[in-house]
Design a protein around this nucleic acid. Structure first.
Length: 374
DNA sequence: GCGGAGATGGACC
DNA sequence: CTAACGGGTCCATCTCCGC
């Protein structure tokens, strides 16, 4: 059956939430920042609203770069309060979820919906059954969603509608903020041809450069490029993925994914190669990971440390152990991994460190819908 | 050849 | 004057190794 998928993207979510929290900020340029705490203003921008974007301030840029763009202007720089954003997010997601199809073969009480939250401010909804192939119906659903989110949370969002997740995602980006864009199957080809290569989902700076080296400058050129040549340069999987993406082809399902890893990272107060100092930070971070682990009821098998040196080069070291739920008990492993790294890397000092657990045991209970059909 | 483990790199928010 | 630089997750790929 043909699908109809919605992609909902909250408009400059962090900044909008801050604007609601403090009425004094209304109408101002707002930038939320991750301050690393090592010097005043060291850190990066996590989000900016449209007023701030007009000045060229974008997420990911160093705070100091953002401040230099903001010089002489009235711009609010606020620390990111992610806990609070997740709180607001969960209320928004509850609204969105209620508009998605009921998953087939699942009892009403379990409330399993064809819904997928992909980040704090984004989600996919499968509405194929409710819309019954009717794009007008789907559009009305999207309008209702926007209305309810605005009334209940005073937030705007942009929604894209298409017959798969990729089309919906690119459609939601087409008109922002407060947009609503429908891309029917007959329109997909034209719509994608007009998307700049650099804006295509899955194409970052490296891939863009690689494609440019092949003489590919537009999405249309990518879609028409000889597959064999693309394959030779990028590998078969990547080549196939890219060419599918350039044509708006995607058959992935809208479904909630199980977490694969939990990690925490932080910047050290000052660069260090002292294992004692570094382990202190790692222990601190591990308490946070431990909390998440407990909440999710997960056991992990692999523990990794993440090390970022003064040149911002990242390295990881990991070890797989017997299944455990207690990170505290395994901190000595992190310590060993760190000692071993430092003894082999006398020249490097660390700027940021992190800890990660992964390899969770499959203890998920199967729901009725997942049992094989008799 | 196939898997798991360990490590790296690219991408996205 | 330039450079400045977070934290979290997913996935693919490569190598090595034992079977």
């Amino acid at each position: 059956m043909a699908r109809i998928i919605l992609h909902v993207d909250m408009d400059s979510f962090y900044a909008s939430v801050e604007e609601l929290r403090n009425p004094d900020l209304k109408g101002k340029a707002i930038v939320t920042c991750m301050f690393s705490g090592r010097t005043k203003d060291s850190g990066a921008v996590s989000a900016s609203n449209y007023k701030a974007r007009e000045l060229g301030i974008r997420s990911g840029m160093p705070i100091r770069a953002a401040k230099s763009l903001a010089k002489g202007k009235d711009v609010a720089f606020l620390p990111s309060d992610r806990e609070y954003y997740w709180e607001v997010s969960s209320r928004v997601m509850q609204i969105l979820r209620s508009y998605a199809d009921q998953r087939e073969g699942v009892s009403r009480r379990l409330q399993s919906m064809a819904f997928e939250q992909v980040s704090v401010d984004e989600a996919y909804l499968d509405v194929s059954r409710k819309a019954k192939g009717d794009w007008v119906k789907a559009r009305k659903t999207a309008e209702s969603i926007k209305k309810e989110v605005l009334e209940k949370e005073r937030l705007t969002c942009s929604i894209g509608i298409g017959s798969n997740k990729l089309v919906a995602k690119m459609a939601s980006k087409a008109q922002k903020p407060d947009g609503l864009t429908v891309v029917k199957d007959s329109e997909v080809r034209g719509f994608f041809e007009n998307i700049p290569l650099s804006k295509l989902f899955g194409i970052g700076p490296k891939t863009l450069a690689g494609l440019e080296a092949l003489g590919i400058k537009t999405t249309k050129e990518l879609s028409e490029h000889d597959f064999k040549e693309l394959e030779k340069a990028l590998g078969s999987r990547k080549a196939k993925d890219l060419q599918d993406t350039s044509l708006g082809i995607d058959d992935s399902a809208v479904e909630e994914k199980e977490a694969q890893q939990i990690s925490r990272m932080a910047t050290l107060k000052k660069d260090s190669d002292d294992p004692k100092e570094i382990m202190e930070k790692i222990e601190e971070l591990s308490e946070d990971v431990e909390k998440d682990l407990k909440e999710a009821g997960l056991h992990y098998k692999t523990i990794s440390i993440i090390l970022i040196d003064t040149r911002l080069q990242m390295q990881t070291r990991s070890r797989t152990t017997i299944e455990s739920s207690s990170l505290k008990k395994n901190l000595d492993i992190a310590g060993e991994l760190l000692e071993k790294f430092l003894s082999g890397n006398h020249e490097s000092k660390l700027r940021r460190v992190g800890i990660r657990v992964s390899g969770f045991s499959q203890r998920k209970q199967r729901t009725l819908g997942e049992f094989p059909k008799a």
